[in-house]
Design a protein around this nucleic acid. Structure first.
Length: 127
DNA sequence: GCATTGACGAAGG
DNA sequence: CCCTTCGCCAATG
């Protein structure tokens, strides 16, 4: 069993059909973020069980632009509460504008009282 | 097919 | 306490 299988070394399925793409889950959680609240990439990654793959969450957000309905990616910032992804929006001002529209104060490209309005899916959703 | 990058994060020096 | 390095997984060059 531990031996390799020399014969048809066909690549197995990248993802079991039982499990959806990591991106889909990220999108789903992102849409669950309530208005006026923000979260970070690591929290979502951890909620999905891949706490170490916070990077993938950010990458998944890249697809958020094409996903429908539109995903409130502006509510997802880095662990420092900084609008690290503002440059990926239509305009660098879009993310900040959307956050302010949600009632989230933003100063110097950073969320004010980030920890105070922090929304943890594991805690809020009860895991 | 390997090297680099990427909207991150935690740990080490 | 600030900066550097590693880890993660996927896409791109």
């Amino acid at each position: 069993m531990s031996k390799n299988n020399p014969s048809s070394s066909k690549k197995n399925l990248q993802q079991p059909k039982e499990k959806y793409s990591f991106f889909e889950d990220v999108h789903a959680v992102a849409r669950l973020i309530p208005k006026g609240r923000v979260t970070n990439y690591g929290a979502i990654a951890k909620y999905l069980g891949t706490k170490m793959s916070a990077r993938m969450v950010g990458w998944a957000m890249n697809a958020a632009h094409t996903a429908k309905p539109k995903i409130p990616a502006q509510r997802v910032v880095n662990r420092n509460g900084m609008l690290s992804g503002k440059m990926h929006f239509a305009t660098p001002n879009t993310m900040e504008a959307l956050l302010k529209k949600d009632g989230v104060a933003v100063k110097n490209d950073k969320v004010v009282d980030f920890e105070k309005i922090f929304w943890d899916p594991i805690k809020e959703l009860g895991m």
